[in-house]
Design a protein around this nucleic acid. Structure first.
Lengths: 204, 204, 204, 204
DNA sequence: AATGAATGAGCATTCATTCAT
DNA sequence: TATGAATGAATGCTCATTCAT
């Protein structure tokens, strides 16, 4: 009858972390069961809160998925910007970005599944998240590529937007394959191979 | 009370088309509403058959999605194989495959949406369809690439599997972006740009 | 493609037996799966006819169940009447009827299941089949009992209708228990025990 | 759009009653429409709760039927045990049990219908509920009968199990007939007639 | 008479969301 | 803030029955 354990240790982080806990729990749950098969009650249980509590922090189940994307995308872009601000060579910039891309996904399989699979399952999401951080990320790649064209290291006749998409597509496929693959390998080193081919392909 | 009209008009198309009609209707419905939001009743209405009729041809809603994938993938692989059997240059082979890839998707937006979006929405599907035709397609790319390495047109130090994935990823991204994009452009020509960069990047 | 076997032996009985074949098949199917879980298609398959054919002989699934009851009940009552018409002792008459009752059910487990279980599953059936042959059977028992009272072998103060129900209930329970029982024993001999107790209980 | 009234009135009965209310409502609904024709929505409406609420207390529609049986059977057996614990004469014990049997059923026609009709409609139920409380009830009758044989009031050569079934069958038939009957009479007094015949029949 | 493809009404169950406490 | 009992809309699938052949 009594609910003994349920250790109040959950206060391991100062208060207010509840939102973050729910987000982390949701990432885990979505990754394991898929967005549509995940119940809000599953997330609540995983986050060790009551069902209703989830709605104190998020308007709906969908908003949780969005928040996972938004938060991580914002972090990634911030990290990426910081990472390259002191670099000069556009090729090196792209290399660092690519490595960071796969490094982040490779460090958290659940997050990777949500990004590579769950977020793709509907045109609605696709369009929305495309309009959001994803476009920004693609723009970062494009601007860096244009910079390379300006300084003469990349072929000037290439459409920068398309070039950015090619690079993104290649990296994205690495991530997706890594998730699906039964084998156990590091994702981040794949960035080197991709960049080798890509830079070779676009260099002036 | 009475069940007036609705007399078995059908036969608009010769018999046996029913399965194909349902498949076509489902592609349209899935593309417009997403797999999870599509009701079997929607598909039935779009195919102009009764709800129950759907189940005479498919075991479940999920099987319909699978059938769309299977059928089109099989056709595509057959067409691809035929297309390149008389070619010698591995580079040309890859060019043709890439063009066919984007041509087919570009010719049927609904089908493209199902392939690029709906089929990606769950690890379950991903793994299953990965195991099926998709793996076969990737293998086709890989073997052609290896052939190119053998005849000396592609860099021998590159991992053929990874190279195949890079190419697929780039093409895949073209397709996905084409779907999401509000602009109206032809998909198939994008193959040329992708192949330009890719071949440049992998050539010996 | 060809449907070779399906031996036309089915004409083992002259034509017109189709109705009987469906009835027999239905008894088997109802007994094994229960009335509500039995599909008309199951019955058709068991009877080796097409689904639609069933409806050439019966108006509905429910009518099949009724027909099983009606037919067997009519046979049983006819057999019972014949069996006792040359007997004098009312006690012997009841003994014969009881034996026949359990003998018939004990000879066809499927039929017994339909009579003891499937026919009981709804007040609607109960009332209908009560109004039909069942009432007639109970009346046979009652009249025979009254005859016994008249000739002085049964206690006159007993209500004959109730006495008939007691006897029927006891026999009915023997049949039901026999069906449910995992053990393997003959049903018909149980009639002797029941008659021993009953006759002892009602004798003047 | 708005979801106006229907405010959580409830609390009409103290909380915790909800399970009991659903059970009572289900008994009524099953009795009136039959188990298979009863919709869970009917039960919910009758119990004045939402459809989903039913599933907070019961795993399935089937479990509701089981629960009706289990609960009432447990109560009846407890009541029966208590009723006879201070009696010595096995004949009197059986008389009391028989009276209680018909008294309980006679006091709640809906419950009687469920017990006499709905619970009988499938071998699955039959076997299950046979394995459960029903067997226990039959065992109670048998043990009491054996006790009577030991103390010499019942004929020793009779099989106690069969004797118990005969008694049960007779009582059961009284109950079933009472339900089906259009006439309006008390069920419980029938126990006396049955016991008169039965005891007369088995007495040493 | 016989067939079996087609029909479409019907229903148990789930689960995101709310709100009284 | 937090809870979790209660809600009720939503839907995939089944199957008795029909009817064109």
């Amino acid at each position: 009858m009594a609910r003994p354990s349920k250790k109040r240790v959950s206060s391991r982080n100062s208060i207010g972390d509840k939102r973050a806990m729910i987000l982390r729990a949701a990432t885990r749950v979505f990754a394991r069961n898929g967005y549509f098969n995940s119940k809000v009650a599953d997330i609540a249980r995983a986050a060790e809160v009551a069902d209703g509590t989830v709605y104190l922090y998020f308007k709906s189940k969908e908003e949780i998925l969005h928040s996972i994307f938004d938060q991580n995308m914002a972090e990634a872009i911030a990290a990426g910007g910081q990472l390259i601000e002191n670099l000069d060579d556009p090729r090196e910039k792209l290399r660092r970005i690519a490595k960071l891309h796969l490094e982040r996904l490779g460090a958290d399989r659940d997050l990777a599944v949500v990004f590579q699979v769950e977020l793709r399952g509907s045109t609605k999401f696709m369009e929305e998240f495309s309009a959001a951080g994803f476009a920004e990320y693609l723009a970062l790649l494009r601007r860096t590529f244009e910079e390379g064209q300006r300084v003469g290291v990349f072929r000037k006749e290439l459409n920068a937007t398309v070039a950015a998409k090619i690079l993104f597509g290649a990296l994205d496929e690495m991530a997706t394959n890594w998730i699906i693959s039964k084998r156990n390998y590091k994702l981040e080193p794949m960035a080197d191979v991709v960049m080798d081919v890509f830079l070779n392909g676009v260099s002036a």
